[in-house]
Nucleic acid binder design. Structure first.
Lengths: 179, 179
DNA sequence: AACAACATGTAATAAGTTACATGATTGG
DNA sequence: CCAATCATGTAACTTATTACATGTTGTT
């Protein structure tokens, strides 16, 4: 099991939306994905040139008057194939599904729905376990002086899992209508 | 601005709860913090021995019959001082506050409350911005074919920020009663 | 007999951050 | 004229993951 390189898929995904530059990738991620993803120039630029060397993207320089020329990257068939293989493959990390959803139009709703169902099922299994923890913590200082603080966090975790579960259900319904 | 080493503070925090071993740290994090934190043995054991070398912890070997002896680590005054300095200091990363809360008993409620208030304020400022995005995305395919998928994610983000905001308010009230 | 849990650790590798370096253009 | 934004990139560093290595004890 190898590590997943989020940066690579963020960049590849952005490229799949149309020709773009490193600067624009950063802007987009900051503006519309900042509450869940981040990416730094130190990842973007090396990733972009690696992608080019590997045949996943092509580059065109655009002269902009006096300034530094823009480097506009475009995804290739090979890049698209790799992106789709990742999108279709299994999620190995928490939240990987959220990133995949950003490029959801590259899959059909019925490829996405089972993934959302699996995610929901996982949360459904975890919720009663968290409820147990809550009861344990409420019944006594089982975790020493930090118990009241863990309790706050666990309450948050419980509500958070519940939110994810509900969101999955709603999203599944929305995707079914899109089909 | 330097990177924060979560692993170091997770281990230091666990040590502040009483003498413990690397194996136990892993177990605890997995059992009670897994929905938000993770830590691997590849981080735990080197961190533990670094902490010892730096005078933040002391180690005692406990022979357990035939098996490999347990290495029980205990936090020192220096380690506690470092932990508290971090707890009192500013949060530089998203979710750092959640980790600090795990060891909340080392601070007074009125040291924690302003931190929660600041976090809530941040979310209160971001919520109307996300509401704007939602309107923008609902009014047309502003982000190409991925728009319906971004919309799902942004809805989640909005509800999530709302949840965090509400949780802050409830936690602040709980902490006020603890005072 | 097999398997999970207890228990510690290292080496190779990968992923991500920060600080730095450079310079044009646009708006107030 | 100053600050922000546009625009690209590198080097040093830190942080984290994975796979491997080893062996015991308790449970089924």
């Amino acid at each position: 099991m190898h590590k997943i390189n989020y940066a690579r898929y963020i960049v590849l995904g952005m490229l799949s939306c149309g020709p773009t530059t490193g600067y624009e990738v950063k802007r987009f991620v900051k503006e519309f994905m900042s509450y869940i993803w981040d990416i730094s120039y130190g990842q973007i630029y090396p990733t972009l040139s690696l992608l080019e060397r590997q045949g996943c993207a092509t580059m065109n320089e655009e002269k902009t008057g006096g300034g530094r020329p823009k480097k506009v990257y475009q995804i290739t068939d090979q890049g698209l194939t790799e992106l789709q293989a990742w999108l279709r493959g299994p999620e190995t990390k928490e939240y990987e599904l959220f990133l995949k959803l950003c490029f959801g139009s590259l899959l059909t709703p019925d490829e996405l729905i089972p993934k959302l169902e699996a995610y929901r099922r996982k949360r459904e299994e975890e919720l009663p376990i968290m409820e147990e923890w809550l009861k344990t913590m409420e019944s006594g200082p089982v975790m020493g002086p930090n118990t009241p603080y863990y309790l706050l966090l666990t309450k948050f975790g419980f509500d958070y899992f519940h939110l994810e579960k509900e969101w999955c259900s709603q999203s599944i319904e929305t995707l079914k209508k899109l089909e």
